[in-house]
């Protein structure tokens, strides 16, 4: 299921404004890749460009190349809707659909394609996805209750369950723990470890300890100067990145001297 992603010479624009410049990286299949860097350096923008979610903002466009196992995401014939289906996303704030039950929330993505699903098939997907998101035991007795009734951490795991229910190839996570308490955060981090065996995961985080804990490889983004576009400073295996980075700026950031 999992696939690798290649990014080459990627420039991202909002209208005329160049937000991120010259990104090159190879994201390995079945691994966790973390993006770190100071606020406004474009790491979320790069993450969103991996499933074309940045296009939600009018005027956003890219130059360069993003390929998933050799398939270009930005070819003119490629449908962004199909891209997003295969590359799932989890957001900063948990966003279950307020009018749907837990059960319906998990199935929201699947319902798009097959309106008439067999009850047993649907039950299977819900159970498998919620188990995959480590949420099954907590909610199995109240699947018909609204998703908004759960705690923040549970809601976020519900969103992860919703994302993996459609069996994507890649899972993008945009600061998935920044709105959560430490215990919920630790539950999500455990989950990321487990999901790694099935999915390619890319996670944006502000928290360097988190990056060090969960990721196999890390990309450090920074602004060249205030008002300049963001760029990828260094991309390396996480142990090397935190112990002995190649770049001085990376070392300065990681050791807390700026940012």
């Amino acid at each position: 299921m999992a696939k690798s992603i290649d990014v080459s010479d990627l420039d991202i624009y909002y209208g005329d404004f160049l937000a991120v410049e010259g990104v090159n990286m190879h994201i390995k299949a079945r691994s966790v890749t973390a993006f770190i860097g100071p606020s406004g350096c474009g790491k979320s923008t790069v993450l969103r460009s991996l499933n074309r979610m940045h296009e939600v903002i009018p005027g956003a466009h890219v130059q360069g190349k993003v390929t998933v196992d050799g398939q270009s995401l930005y070819d003119s014939a490629v449908d962004p809707v199909a891209v997003r289906r295969q590359i799932g996303m989890v957001f900063q704030r948990p966003n279950p659909f307020p009018t749907m039950s837990i059960y319906e929330n998990v199935l929201a993505g699947n319902r798009l394609n097959s309106k008439k699903m067999k009850k047993t098939e649907a039950d299977d997907i819900v159970e498998r996805s919620l188990k995959g998101a480590n949420l099954w035991n907590e909610v199995k007795d109240r699947l018909d209750k609204p998703g908004m009734g759960l705690s923040g951490g549970q809601q976020q795991r519900l969103c992860i369950a919703r994302a993996i229910a459609v069996e994507p190839q890649v899972l993008l996570m945009d600061e998935p723990c920044s709105a959560l308490d430490p215990i919920s955060t630790s539950a999500i981090e455990d989950l990321i470890h487990e999901l790694k065996s099935d999915y390619t995961i890319v996670i944006v985080t502000h928290n360097m300890q988190q990056a060090a804990r969960v990721s196999d490889e890390t990309g450090f983004f920074n602004l060249k100067a205030a008002g300049q576009p963001g760029h990828l400073v260094e991309f390396n295996a996480t142990p090397k990145m935190f112990a002995n980075p190649d770049n001085e700026a990376t070392e300065a950031y990681i050791s807390g001297r700026f940012g």
């Binding site: 891209v83 996303m89 957001f91 704030r93 966003n95 993505g109 798009l112 994302a163």
Partner: peptide, 13 residues
């Protein structure tokens, strides 16, 4: 809320 709309779009809606 934008988050709701993005949730739907990210599912491939």
């Amino acid at each position: 809320p934008t988050t709701q709309q993005e949730a739907a779009l990210a599912l491939g809606a």
